[in-house]
Design a binder for these strands. Structure first.
Lengths: 349, 349
DNA sequence: CGACCTATTGATCGGACTCAAGGTTGGTGG
DNA sequence: CCACCAACCTTGAGTCCGATCAATAGGTCG
């Protein structure tokens, strides 16, 4: 695995290089943007880490020049910067950067970010794979997709800040969405303004396909939970993928059938189970979805949990208090830790 | 439209012939089973009406001999009989008869039955059409299916008496089911034994496809509501239809997406709406589904309505009493009549 | 006609929603 | 760095909807 680091500060460059070589990567360096672009085009590394603040050609320029060349446009790109300004962050993400590391960074953060991005080249293809196979065990066969071709050609990047809408109920779908980084939830609202969360999505997942597939206006709204970078795939590309590849179509049929059954299960749950049971289920659902990202604990707002369980915020809080008392969970500030996963998972009453 | 009547009683034959000719059909007659089969094979009528009790070759034999010849096996077949015994009824239905008229019959019943069956030759194809187009306005293009071929070749007939299970939760799906006549409901059960009805199906509809498509055990149970004649289509045939016909696959994707969205809507409903609203919605749902069959009123058991609305039987009854008081519905015995459809449909509280 | 099932009404009880009032936390700007 | 504000979390009190239990009436089937 070849990694290219573009960084004008010699100390930082050496340090980072050493760190990554210790971890077992082959690393090359470039001392400024121009050289960086040149090396990138010549050696086609598997990953590029690039500083933003550099004389002459800055990080944004580097990313831009690499993105217009098909050969380099798909190489994972991580920004490295002292700036922690949200505006800059968004600018980089909109250009198509894959991650953003703020100096000074922890070694572990760098390594983790690198590994995550490396394991994700051809992410879209892999994501679509697990997408249509319903996230199931069996591997869906999309290997005969030409490896040199991207799954989707015309995609745009867009960044949404927390609580920004990605799309609104009753709007017309134009895109299939793919989350490069961040978190999105979809929800429906009833006449009284009460919300029910219908979907939780994270990094490397697609969303917004139901309304697209049923060829109708959006039946729910989608909102970014955290700062989220999204790839917008024109619906025509999505449709042509489904229409031209039988295995994708079949995968969708299977996945959608599964979803129908899951929703029916939730209906049964919502119809007859107590709030306690529903909150327990909601916690587990959230836990299963995001536990990798928040090993430290669940960062879920009480209101969101209420809107997953289909109850009121106060009821959720009271239930959580009970769970604490019974030793099922513990909490520290807004963060929830699951202490007794097994019992919570089999919660009955 | 040619109709063949096979009936050994000359009076009945003449009477029926006259009746149908008056309605505008071309009618030929046969005075016994043997002749009936002969005429049927020669003239290939569009519909056959046949008495059961006949000397020499009885109605069952006629049906049997016609069903083993591919040329005549798909002709709609109506039994005419003085017997009203349920055993006989089921015997006829199992052999593949399409309807069953008991003598003495009302003229209107005969005409209605004939028209219904005639409008339904190639029923399966038409049913699959509206099935995959999600019952929507647009016609789905399945015209290039060879007209001389049945959609499915190997199908079996089976008759289920009221409250008999068609399939059981956790069983393994082998068939796609198609209702020739009757009514089926599917439901899930929770740990406390409470039921939630997940699907209502009637004549000319398919059911049991979710578990088939997601390739897993049944996630719900199916039960016959009334005496129901079902066609069992082996899953292999169903799969080959999906795999070989792109338009069918696409239709399924669209239909399933629609179902997901509908289930989500129900979730929102169940989560936040009052029992009254849910009962109103349940009534409307039932009404929309079966109003053609029961112009006279809805024959729904209170318990079923409760299991659609996700509430208890008593609550349903109390709500119905209120609706009666407010003039939204009226009732006569177990039958419910909808008096103010509009208000019921827009029920808010 | 008796057994059984379904529909209906009454009475009671409790879970969960609502409203209301602090308490915490985190972010922002002076 | 601290003060302030807004957003979120938490707890309390009161209320009501809807589930449950129980009893009766009406219908149906053998």
């Amino acid at each position: 695995m070849n990694i290219l680091i573009i960084e004008d500060n010699k100390d930082v460059l050496d340090n980072t290089t050493e760190l990554l070589e210790l971890t077992g990567y082959k690393v090359s360096g470039a001392i400024n943007g121009k050289e960086g672009v040149k090396v990138a085009k010549e050696t086609l590394p598997d990953l590029i880490i690039c500083d933003i603040m550099m004389p002459e050609m800055d990080g944004y320029d580097v990313l831009y020049y690499l993105s217009i060349d098909p050969k380099t446009s798909t190489i994972p790109f991580i920004f490295l910067t002292a700036k922690s300004d949200a505006t800059d962050f968004r600018k980089g993400m909109e250009l198509g950067a894959d991650d953003y590391l703020t100096k000074p960074f922890e070694e572990i953060d760098l390594i983790k970010s690198v590994e995550r991005r490396l394991s994700k080249s051809n992410r879209l293809k892999k994501a679509m794979n697990s997408f249509v196979s319903g996230g199931a065990e069996e591997e869906f066969d999309m290997e005969n997709v030409d490896e040199n071709h991207e799954l989707f050609k015309n995609k745009k990047n867009k960044v949404f800040r927390p609580k920004n809408f990605v799309y609104l109920q009753y709007g017309s779908p134009i895109y299939l969405y793919y989350i490069k980084k961040g978190q999105v939830k979809t929800f429906k609202t009833n006449e009284d303004g009460k919300e029910l969360i219908t979907g939780l999505y994270k990094e490397n997942e697609f969303f917004g396909y139901h309304s697209l597939l049923k060829d109708d206006e959006y039946s729910d709204s989608a909102i970014a939970v955290v700062e989220t970078q999204v790839e917008l795939i024109p619906k025509e590309e999505f449709f042509s993928l489904i229409k031209n590849r039988r295995e994708v179509a079949n995968g969708f049929i299977k996945m959608l059938s599964k979803e129908v059954v899951e929703k029916e299960e939730e209906l049964l749950n919502l119809a007859y189970n107590s709030v306690k049971k529903r909150v327990a289920d909601g916690l587990i659902k959230y836990f299963d979805k995001y536990s990798q990202d928040y090993i430290k604990g669940l960062q879920i707002p009480r209101e969101d949990l209420a809107n997953i369980a289909g109850t009121s915020t106060e009821s959720v809080i009271r239930t959580l208090s009970e769970f604490k008392r019974d030793g099922l969970i513990s909490a520290e500030g807004k963060t929830i830790y699951i202490s007794n996963e097994k019992e919570l998972r089999n919660y009955k009453y």
